[in-house]
Design a protein around this nucleic acid. Structure first.
Lengths: 342, 342
DNA sequence: AATCTATTTGTAAGCGCTTACATTGATAAT
DNA sequence: ATTATCAATGTAAGCGCTTACAAATAGATT
């Protein structure tokens, strides 16, 4: 009641309960080491003082934070949302808190965020894609913070990751495109610089073209940011080419949605005049019209498995395995045979 | 070199540079208190040891973290993404780091996240909407953590907020709906329990109906989660009613997108047979077809202003003002006059 | 030359918690 | 009864940093 109005500490609780701070700490962290009667007294004191442990102090003393950090390139569209939500839910079940920050696709910012999270005592980190300065990985190693790569899976990379094979997934889609009869293929990709996922998707298309006897160099490629608006702009450029490509493969559904919007605006019929494909199968893909033919990525499954793997690493139960998540083609309406040659 | 492989501390740096820890600390935090020569020596030591300050220790000693926390209801769709991105960018400019967590629209989880963020030393908190247990606010007060409400603005609530007037905004849209001639109005709302934004939007419609001489009780209301799928389900229910509503006003664009998708599936023409409206004007609104008539919320402006206000509060330059952001109607294609009575 | 002032640096006391180790008391084994 | 064993609790040493205060040094002022 008439007590000091400032935030109560462990010490205050100890005094109120007539025990030592050690006992209070034990009540909170390993209750079975404390006898029932004492525990009740302590908990009552905790309750009545409205005590909440100070995290900074706890982290410092215990060198453990039960916090996992994730740095994603952007929150601005739904690409990472679903997977991350599942990641968080799974972590919560295991008693971890997830802290997220976004790097806006800027490596400098990402560096900064990583330091911030590590300095804050994150027990582990989720990173998107492999491509980043080696210095970052050695920094993490020095600080003994386990990290897991997600959204990418590359058997060659000897670094734990839970993701999917971007190259093959896009390759399969390209296969479908080519078997539909397309030869003049264009692609709107995200920036490939520092983005292995984007790069692999481009490579996937090229590789499949080559395997199908097409000239991989004939791929018309535009790189741009992953934004609807940018997808629209790129599509417009592509449509002004002669001869026009008969299909526009997009690096993800967001770009494809932009392309589709622009097609509507230009009065170009999809898929009758031009086919368009996406990647990710986020909700958007089903909503646009025509609905997108795209690659389905089981984001939730990825999030769940990533959470399991990362907690295992943090708790010393795993050195970091890699898990490949299977993607699959989703045939909807935006891909068809090319129009008859005029 | 042959040094100890563990993480370097302030002390290590001090020794390496031949100064006291205080001097090193000053180099890092208020460089102008240290003479040039010393500073260089210290910075060199910092560099060569690869030193990064331990945040927990710093927070504990300084009682200041330069961290702002935000708890949003969901990351699963784009409603909060744009505003939050701008919020973060603005904070970064002022030297703050943003940590985000999502509550999945669950008050318990929100409570937990708030505690987590406060315990982690967040200097201030951004919360979405007013509606939450009074206990939370008093907890924040006791811990002296300034908090700012966003996405809502209610002159009656005497609590700092940067947001928009949900009631009026939706009221204006209802006005447009009614002047187009609609009388059988249905609404698909988000859950109103514990969500003042959703509640206000419903109230806005009802109030305007009453003012326009319609019976506010005649509003057919379905409450559901803010998901595309749910919007679709609700729309289907609504369409099986007799007489059918002539317009379906949705609590946000996500629900509206679901409604539109379902309309397509059912072969119901929008807006010829039924009109549909949204709220938020996220990118989705422009992409669906027909493009949504909706309420435009300047999310970036809100994010920016919220960041400014919250940092001012944290730095003691403001006791927390409230700022009202103006919304505006966006007329696109999904709202038209009701069909002639059959 | 003596004194004062301002600037730069050092000393050391915490910040609130965890945990290794010491202590206590009770029960079991001899 | 004596000793060994064990569970419950207490004692106190940090964890890595900031900052009030003290000390030292160098000019400026008289």
């Amino acid at each position: 009641m008439g007590k000091n109005r400032s935030v109560p500490t462990l010490n205050d609780v100890a005094k109120a309960a007539g025990v030592s701070t050690a006992t209070v700490s034990r009540c909170l962290n390993s209750p079975d080491q404390v006898i029932e009667a004492t525990r009740q007294r302590v908990m009552q004191a905790v309750e009545s003082l409205g005590y909440t442990p100070n995290f900074a102090a706890r982290v410092m003393a215990a060198k453990r934070s039960y916090t996992i950090g994730a740095i994603i390139p952007t929150m601005d569209n739904a690409i990472f949302a679903r997977g991350l939500q599942e990641f968080q839910d799974q972590l919560r079940e295991s008693g971890y808190t997830l802290l997220v920050s976004s790097s806006a696709y800027d490596p400098e910012v990402e560096w900064e965020q990583i330091r911030a999270l590590v300095a804050r005592g994150a027990d582990g980190l989720l990173l998107i894609g492999y491509a980043r300065d080696a210095e970052i990985y050695s920094y993490l190693e020095r600080h003994q913070v386990p990290s897991l790569v997600a959204w990418s899976y590359d058997p060659e990379a000897h670094r734990p990751s839970v993701g999917f094979d971007n190259l093959n997934a896009m390759g399969k889609l390209a296969q479908a495109v080519i078997s539909a009869g397309h030869q003049r293929i264009a692609m709107i990709s995200g920036q490939t610089l520092g983005n292995d996922r984007a790069q692999s998707r481009v490579d996937g298309v090229r590789q499949t073209m080559a395997e199908s006897g097409l000239d991989a160099n004939s791929l018309t490629l535009i790189e741009t940011d992953y934004e609807i608006e940018k997808g629209a702009e790129a599509f417009q450029q592509l449509m002004s080419l002669t001869p026009r490509p008969t299909v526009v493969m997009c690096g993800n559904d967001v770009l494809a949605a932009g392309a589709l919007r622009e097609a509507g605006r230009l009065g170009i019929k999809v898929p009758e005049q031009v086919s368009v494909t996406g990647f990710d199968d986020i909700e958007l893909a089903e909503i646009v019209s025509p609905a997108l033919t795209t690659v389905h990525v089981p984001h939730r499954e990825m999030g769940r498995k990533a959470a399991r793997e990362l907690t295992a690493m943090v708790e010393g139960n795993s050195d970091g395995r890699s898990i490949c998540i299977n993607t699959r083609l989703v045939n909807r309406c935006s891909l068809a045979r090319p129009p008859r040659q005029p």
